[in-house]
Simulated assay, not measured.
Amino acid sequence: MSTTIVLREAHPDVEPGLGALRGYLHDVISRMHGRPAAEDEVAAFGDENSSDGLVAPDGTFLVAVEDDGAAVGCVGLRWRGPGVPEDAAEIKRMWSSHEVRGLGVGKLLLDEVVRLTREAGLARLVLDSRADLVEARTLYERAGFVEVEAYNDNPHAQVWYALDLT
């Protein structure tokens, strides 16, 4: 494994964004079903939700890339769209590969979306999560996110968070 990881803005439909998004989907779908995700499940979800507001002007998609080009993490940030509160940006598709978990990649990604949201002058950052994404939830809580009432109707979410940036 390389020792240098950089963040790059990417499109979720082409490499390295596509590889990162597929890693995210494999992880989440596997947890949802308690078994490895099938390629057709990943492809179907990707076809329906790939960019999901994560491209300009509605959002951005960041990929953590090792110096050998391997995507080891990602995070999306939606500036606007269905379910995004008026005064907030929303985190979507936060993921780090098993190989780099615990090495600070998630924190690097999260710190960058916090910085971008502050730079945009928004009052808060929100996200929804599945209850079983324990590593992600721990990361959010350590960064100061607090549980809030549901701000959207995502049928896959069980927990909603917000971080006040004012």
Rank of each mutant, 00 (worst) to 15 (best):
M1H: 09
S2N: 11
T3W: 13
V6D: 10
A10M: 14
A10L: 10
D13F: 10
V14H: 10
E15C: 02
E15H: 12
G17S: 06
A20M: 03
A20L: 02
L21Q: 11
L21S: 02
R22W: 06
R22C: 05
G23Q: 12
L25V: 01
H26F: 10
R31D: 11
G34D: 02
A38G: 02
E39K: 08
D40H: 09
D40Y: 04
D40R: 00
V42R: 01
A43L: 07
F45M: 09
F45E: 09
G46Q: 09
S50V: 15
D52Y: 11
D52I: 06
P57L: 08
D58L: 01
F61G: 07
F61Y: 15
F61I: 10
V63E: 01
V63K: 02
A64R: 01
A71H: 02
G73E: 04
G76Q: 07
G76P: 04
G76F: 11
L77W: 14
R78V: 06
R80M: 07
P85K: 09
P85F: 10
E86M: 12
E90Q: 15
E90G: 08
W95R: 15
W95N: 13
S96Y: 08
V100A: 11
V100E: 09
G102K: 10
V105M: 13
V105F: 10
V105N: 09
V105L: 07
G106R: 13
G106W: 11
K107E: 12
K107P: 00
L109F: 14
L110S: 03
L110W: 11
E112D: 13
V113S: 05
V113R: 06
T117A: 08
T117E: 13
T117C: 08
T117S: 13
R118W: 10
R118N: 04
E119C: 00
E119W: 03
E119I: 00
A120N: 03
G121W: 11
A123R: 11
V126R: 02
A131I: 06
L133N: 03
L133Y: 01
A136L: 03
A136Y: 10
A136P: 05
R137P: 05
R137F: 04
T138M: 08
T138C: 03
L139Q: 08
Y140V: 12
Y140W: 05
E141C: 01
R142M: 05
R142F: 00
R142A: 05
V146F: 06
E149C: 03
E149T: 09
A150K: 13
A150D: 12
D153S: 15
A157E: 07
A157Y: 04
Q158S: 06
L163G: 05
L163R: 04
D164K: 03
D164M: 03
D164S: 01
T166S: 12
